[in-house]
């Protein structure tokens, strides 16, 4: 009697595990195409330091700031990973730290909001036209 009950419980557990596995695999199916256009992954240092890579969402920031604010006034270069950002600089009020200072936006102590990427991703802008090309560009 008890034995069968455990079998039932076990099969239920198996069922739930299967559901979970199916959900997870459907999530990871064809990832690249789902990344929001313009999201920049920055991972020059994060992985090596045991942090998740940083994901910077352009769409979210451009609703609030024109490109000029970051790329002229604050001096961000137009190159993913090209600004050699690190935590000391941010904490000292440079780069993301110009705004993420608990005055214009929430502060640097909220690590998980910036360091939110899937581990081991390369530094680059996502879902670009180049990403979606089927064949290489010839001059």
């Amino acid at each position: 009697m008890l034995g069968r009950r455990t079998i039932v419980r076990l099969s239920l557990v198996v069922a739930y595990v299967l559901i979970a596995v199916l959900c997870v695999t459907s999530l990871f199916n064809d990832n690249e195409a789902k990344a929001e256009y313009g999201d920049v992954v920055i991972n020059n240092y994060s992985d090596a330091a045991g942090m998740r890579p940083v994901v910077f969402p352009h769409w979210f920031h451009r609703i609030r700031f024109r490109c000029k604010v970051c790329h002229a006034d604050l001096g961000f270069k137009f190159k993913a990973g090209g600004n050699d950002i690190n935590m000391l600089k941010i904490f000292d009020g440079q780069f993301c730290g110009r705004c993420h200072n608990n005055s214009i936006a929430w502060g640097v102590e909220n690590c998980v909001l910036c360091h939110s990427g899937v581990p081991n991703m390369k530094t680059r802008v996502h879902n670009s036209t180049s990403d979606r090309l089927v064949a290489p560009v010839a001059k």
Binding site: D30, A35, E36, V41, R52, C111, V112, S116, V118, P119
Partner: peptide
């Protein structure tokens, strides 16, 4: 316009991911 937890770039395991817009 996939939600962050399903966009393949954000880690669904990261506790901050669900707070993102």
């Amino acid at each position: 316009n996939a939600p962050p937890a399903e966009d393949g770039v954000h880690d669904p395991q990261n506790p901050g991911t669900t707070m993102l817009q």
